[in-house]
Simulated scan of single mutants.
Amino acid sequence: MLKICYNGHYYSEHEAILQAGNKSYRYGDGFFETIRVWKNEILLSSYHKKELKKV
């Protein structure tokens, strides 16, 4: 069984967590961040932390 983490809570893949009126769901709003990892270290971690705080 797959799990989905949504706002720090885990849900079953079959459990509805978004409502049809959700703006992000309806208009495709969202946030996507690609983070490169090398030898278990996040490269440019301070940059990524700043970007995540902007959201």
Rank of each mutant, 00 (worst) to 15 (best):
M1S: 01
M1D: 01
K3T: 07
I4N: 04
I4C: 11
I4S: 05
C5V: 08
C5S: 10
Y6D: 04
N7Q: 07
G8T: 09
G8Y: 06
G8P: 08
Y11M: 00
S12N: 03
E13T: 09
A16E: 02
A16R: 02
I17P: 01
L18C: 12
L18V: 03
L18K: 06
L18T: 00
Q19L: 12
A20T: 08
G21F: 12
G21C: 13
G21V: 11
N22P: 07
N22Q: 09
N22E: 05
K23M: 07
K23T: 15
Y25C: 03
R26P: 15
Y27I: 12
Y27Q: 11
G28K: 03
G28N: 05
D29G: 04
G30C: 09
F31M: 15
F31C: 10
T34C: 09
T34G: 05
T34H: 02
T34P: 03
I35R: 05
I35L: 14
I35A: 11
I35D: 05
R36L: 06
W38M: 03
W38P: 00
W38S: 11
W38R: 08
K39W: 04
K39D: 15
K39A: 08
N40W: 11
E41T: 10
I42H: 05
I42G: 02
I42C: 02
I42R: 01
L43F: 06
L43Q: 08
L44A: 11
L44M: 07
S45L: 13
S45P: 00
S45D: 12
S46C: 00
S46A: 11
S46K: 02
Y47S: 01
Y47D: 02
H48S: 04
K50W: 14
K50N: 12
K50R: 12
K50A: 10
K50V: 13
L52V: 09
L52M: 11
K53N: 00
K54Y: 12
K54T: 10
V55M: 02
V55H: 05
V55T: 05
V55Q: 06
V55I: 15
